[in-house]
Design a protein around this nucleic acid. Structure first.
Lengths: 346, 346
DNA sequence: TCCGTCTACCCAATCGATTGGGTACGCCGT
DNA sequence: ACGGCGTACCCAATCGATTGGGTAGACGGA
């Protein structure tokens, strides 16, 4: 007979039970219930013997079997646009840690922000019988979330929010405001925004926060100075090219809603002979580990990515426990560096 | 009664069977066995009725139950140093794709290259009853692998290799050689290596490939010009500082075994007033998406990260199917960019 | 007519843990 | 001496899919 599961011979409850001459159910109760053992499950002596043997034999319960009976897998499904996006990767680290602390394991899948894939991955998670989902790729206009809610699938959103659903995000509006105040304070009056994808609340909120605050400060910002783009370096580069082509005189400061887009924009500026930080200030968002390490260190809004992940897990746990949960917005902080440290003549 | 599993009411084999007035086992055989249905499982007509109903009711088999019986979870466990390392994140994307194609799902966990954590995460994977492991954080001196092999846990290595175990890696020695030839050809004669962590085969092989080839070309490379370091930007920066402090005259070219270390080194050079590409050539490794986008684009050895991930899955599948598998080394390609494009006076 | 052979199913055990409902025994108070 | 009550267990069903071993009925050939 082939032993197919990894790890070879595994010890079962029954093994422990028969070795001790007691019934498996008794063993289960002892090992399962933390300390309500005192309340009628078994004698202290037996409990000790069982725990001792379990340790000695390296017993580890089969989650398949337990889940089959209890209808809970202690699995959380996580869906992100792509894990090779540093921002999501770090949030996932937070998820992984927090989930482990609660005794959950996590699946991650990439949807590449494609609605088709989102649906496929969601289904595939549910087919695996996850207890709930953490959705990191929510689109503002998606019907998928409403469907999931109708099917009573427990889920929470992460990174991006959608009104009506619980989410763990950065306070992106505030983040945009911080940048507006910073650049205004440095004397810039002609600015442009690399705004990201319009289906993502991160992009929309950061842009709105910036633009609204800018106008509240008395600034002007023409429509063509707000350019929607992809989140990666290539997207940022293209957006910067567009801005340079259409805005005359060119802006003295750029706000990119994402560090990678900001890096792309820096490249574009450079190939137009414009000095980042000198001729044009640039501010990014997320403060990924690269921002500070660039040859011209990039100013960026630091968002608490690890905590966003951790919070998402806590929210989902709340939902799974049947509690009503409220969305959480975590505070960002602006880190000013060389790319926007110098003032502009007013 | 609470419906706890995500997705609410689920259809079971028995539901389908009783609705059609046949036995669950018949339904199972029809749905399970691709086309050997013809061979005695059921009539074509019944098979069609079953498949039709399964589709209509949205039947999806419970992997818990199936796994309990078959002792196979169709789960692969993946362990990496950290997923927020772009290199590993991309390999994981390859894994995810390839695993999905084979009907497997994957767990990922971060070990932070800490032996303690490696062990913990491995155990936790096995407790989840994964069918096998893809280990992306193997240390050359680790006893863990030998233990796993002794316990007959099916596993393969990825990214880093360890003699005696099957692995999917880049041909790192060749990668190092490519860099040596390139820099030699550009006329450099005084070079240094930022060598990475000595417990990782990637670091050791890339360094060895470089150094051996360099000497074969007739070059000299003193011991103090090879500095072991962490893989991140901070590590690269420190290593570059060390090199600049101890090598006099300073080298005209640096080879960092990792792009992030290379970026850190570029920062160090810059703060010493040395122009990257002009005064000192820099070459990295992996060709992560950032390399080409840096203000001074970074030369880098492109390693086929996605394919390495995909290959690892295929190897593990082979092991799970009981086949003998051979390690695979995928060919890297050198991408020359501005950071090392200019020659050095011979 | 009888036996063999398919075809198209059915039956029941099984995987390992969980859980609602027993039950035997001892001890206590009266 | 007897009812009552805890304590410390045991029993058996259950979750959903899988699988080795039947079996009834049809059909064919000798």
């Amino acid at each position: 007979m082939e032993e197919s599961t990894a790890g070879g011979r595994t010890v079962t409850l029954k093994d422990l039970a028969s070795e001790l001459g007691i019934h498996p159910s008794t063993v289960s109760r002892i090992l399962h219930s933390g300390s309500d053992v005192a309340r009628g499950a078994a004698s202290v002596a037996t409990a000790e013997r069982v725990r001792e043997l379990a340790r000695k034999r390296g017993y580890s319960p089969d989650p398949q079997a337990a889940g089959l009976r209890t209808r809970r897998t202690h699995l959380m499904g996580v869906i992100v646009p792509r894990l090779s996006d540093l921002v999501l990767a770090i949030m996932y680290e937070g998820i992984d840690e927090a989930a482990a602390e609660l005794g959950y394991s996590t699946f991650v899948m990439n949807s590449r922000d494609d609605p088709e894939e989102q649906r496929r991955k969601t289904d595939s998670m549910l087919a695996r019988r996850v207890d709930g989902l953490i959705i990191g790729d929510a689109h503002l206009d998606s019907g998928l979330l409403r469907e999931l809610a109708a099917r009573k699938v427990p889920f929470v959103l992460m990174n991006r929010r959608v009104p009506g659903f619980p989410s763990a995000t950065c306070d992106d509006v505030l983040g945009g405001e911080l940048v507006a105040e910073h650049l205004w304070g440095k004397g810039h009056r002609n600015v442009a925004v690399i705004a990201g994808e319009p289906y993502a609340s991160t992009a929309v909120d950061r842009t709105a926060g910036f633009v609204d605050r800018w106008r509240a400060l008395g600034g002007r910002i023409p429509r063509k100075a707000v350019v929607w783009s992809r989140f990666d370096t290539a997207g940022g580069r293209e957006a910067a090219e567009t801005i340079l082509a259409h805005c005359n005189p060119h802006p003295t400061a750029l706000f990119a809603v994402n560090d990678f887009a900001a890096i792309g924009a820096m490249g574009a500026l450079r190939s137009h002979g414009l000095g980042v930080g000198r001729d044009v200030a640039v501010v990014g968002f997320n403060d990924t580990s690269l921002a500070a390490e660039l040859p011209i260190p990039l100013s960026s809004v630091r968002s608490p990515m690890l905590d966003i992940g951790r919070t998402a897990v806590q929210l989902l746990k709340g939902v799974l426990d049947g509690r009503k949960v409220e969305s959480v917005k975590l505070k960002p902080v602006l880190c000013v560096r060389e790319s926007s440290a110098f003032g502009n003549a007013v």
